[in-house]
Nucleic acid binder design. Structure first.
Lengths: 149, 149
DNA sequence: TCTTAATTAAGAATTAATACTATTTAGGTT
DNA sequence: AACCTAAATAGTATTAATTCTTAATTAAGA
């Protein structure tokens, strides 16, 4: 679903303010990339943005798209859809539990979060679709890292 | 933290049963890889397993480690730590919301889940560490896919 | 022991993401 | 309005995770 023009221009104004606040140069590339991102609710990836931008600016490099999107996140103009774990990692514990990722040491600790199922029943998700699984992950600093510092 | 020997051999027995149940051949590589995985609670990645196995079997290929871990997941002998999103994706909506990933079309829909903060207060996570952020993602089939089929 | 489909090692191929470098440009300053 | 400089960009190279290919090996049932 594409968003309305008014909606987008409002977002664009806000974006330009954010750029000035952050002393970030307003370039045609940045404007087009933001416009492409703000015009959709499809949570596009780098390639989708890149392909769209190339129609208007045939010479943008993919590197620019990567850099620009990362910049938008830093500025608070966009968020990255959570990738909970950069690399594939495995766990021989197949019972139900949740994962805590330590941002300092990169380790993962298991924990049990109670009340999730109950909460799940209380929220009506039929408008979204048929939910098959749910993932809850936490991030922060693990106890070991807190103690060793 | 390494797990106790009894613990591991119990897991190993269960693993061998699973192999037979799934008509999967029991190879020395699979045994060693499972042993390495079951012996730790560190949620190792492919490289960690690979390096450990090479000490015992200097010729295993990384490809075998990849294949074997994926097989373990299929068999139900291990789980993959949730990677919520294979590729980087962005969202211009920076307000608090959750994501629903459609397994059929690959799309992402936004939704709002209420009661999370309350639940968060009710769970004591001080034993794990200092929590800075929390991610809740759902997976399933989105409404559009359900309707178009 | 024999047979065969499954598994493997080794290395090539693929692909997302990042880094490098020479060139260009936004935007403050004359 | 032209000028200056740090920031940004295009184009290309590189890195690193994962997957694929192929020929050789092997587990396990007959």
């Amino acid at each position: 679903m594409e968003l309305s023009t008014e909606m987008i221009s409002e977002k664009m104004e806000n974006f330009l303010k954010l750029c000035k606040k952050n002393k970030v140069k307003i370039t045609p590339q940045r404007i087009e990339i933001f416009k492409a991102l703000a015009a959709t609710d499809e949570h596009p990836g780098v390639d989708e943005i890149y392909n769209r931008i190339r129609l208007i600016m045939p010479n943008v490099s993919k590197d620019t798209v990567y850099r620009t999107l990362a910049l938008f996140e830093e500025m608070g103009a966009a968020i990255k859809v959570e990738q909970l774990c950069e690399r594939v990692r495995y766990d021989a514990d197949v019972t139900e539990h949740q994962h805590f990722l330590c941002e300092r040491c990169g380790g993962i600790k298991d924990f049990h979060f109670s009340g999730l199922r109950k909460l799940f029943k209380e929220n009506d998700l039929s408008e979204v679709g048929e939910v098959k699984s749910m993932v809850l992950q936490l991030r922060g600093t693990c106890k070991d890292c807190l103690n060793n510092n």
